[in-house]
Amino acid sequence: MIGYALTFGFFAVCLALMLNLWRLVQGPTLMDRVLAVDTMMINAIALIILYGIQQQTTLYFEAALLLAMFGFISTVAYCRFVLRGDVIE
């Protein structure tokens, strides 16, 4: 039963990634693209977690944690660059 649920989960996350990619290409403003990349980062975390369940290994948690941290830091750095013209003043 978990196998079927995992198949649905992979399908859902991949569809969500495709929709985010559409917004990333289409996005009329700059911040739309930043938001799309941030959402793609969160969806990638979900994909890694589901893959870890499928492979029955806890090896990928560190990758998910690193992606969470770098997604947040890169988004904040880019927004700060837009706001102030510099990342670290």
């Binding site: 995992l6 989960g9 859902a12 569809l15 929709l19 985010n20 917004r23 959402t39 969806n43 979900a46």
Partner: peptide, 15 residues
């Protein structure tokens, strides 16, 4: 897992 997948789809469709 199924509810989480549905929420992820809803978020991206909203985006």
């Amino acid at each position: 897992i199924v509810v989480g997948g549905c929420f992820v789809i809803v978020g991206s469709v909203g985006l």
